[in-house]
């Protein structure tokens, strides 16, 4: 009897465990509440960013001297205004002092962070990401794969 009960219990745990895993697989990053706001850049420094462990946010690391046909911040701002999502922003000099720089070395970049860890980012050295810096639809398609946008 006890054996049957144990078997049943194990079965129930396995079923619920699998469901939970399936649920996480399809989850997008739910940003911290404060970032579902007005669609602004929030300028920060390295001290602030290094204290954002276990937080969920989108970071724009920029290099002021960059010159592209369309300034990439205009692309990101259009997206942020549409969806009323705030991004943290940090200049390259401060960004180099953060732990994230160990993984993502070049600016400009957009980094999606969950629980303090990098989930995805735009790579300034990749041809695949070039259009996301210069076309708001491409950027939207990319970022909406990763972050949750409330209806």
């Amino acid at each position: 009897m006890i054996k049957k009960l144990l078997l049943l219990l194990t079965f129930i745990i396995l079923i619920t465990g699998c469901s939970k895993t399936k649920h996480y697989d399809t989850n997008k990053v739910v940003l911290d509440d404060i970032y579902y706001n007005k669609g602004n850049f929030i300028d920060i420094n390295s001290d602030y960013l290094n204290n954002q462990n276990h937080k969920n946010y989108v970071l724009f690391a920029y290099n002021s001297f960059c010159t592209f046909q369309i300034p990439c911040e205009d692309i990101f701002q259009e997206y942020m205004t549409k969806y009323k999502v705030d991004f943290l922003s940090i200049n390259i000099d401060e960004y180099k002092k953060t732990k994230l720089h160990d993984t993502v070395e070049y600016a400009p970049t957009i980094i999606i962070v969950k629980d303090g860890k990098i989930i995805a980012y735009l790579d300034a050295e990749s041809d695949d990401d070039l259009n996301k810096y210069q076309d708001v639809k491409e950027f939207e398609k990319w970022i909406n794969n990763y972050i949750f946008i409330p209806n």
Binding site: F68, Y106, A124, E125, S126, L130, Y133
Partner: peptide, 8 residues
């Protein structure tokens, strides 16, 4: 030439 944005 670098790829991506840096290639520009």
């Amino acid at each position: 030439k670098s790829e991506g944005l840096r290639g520009i």
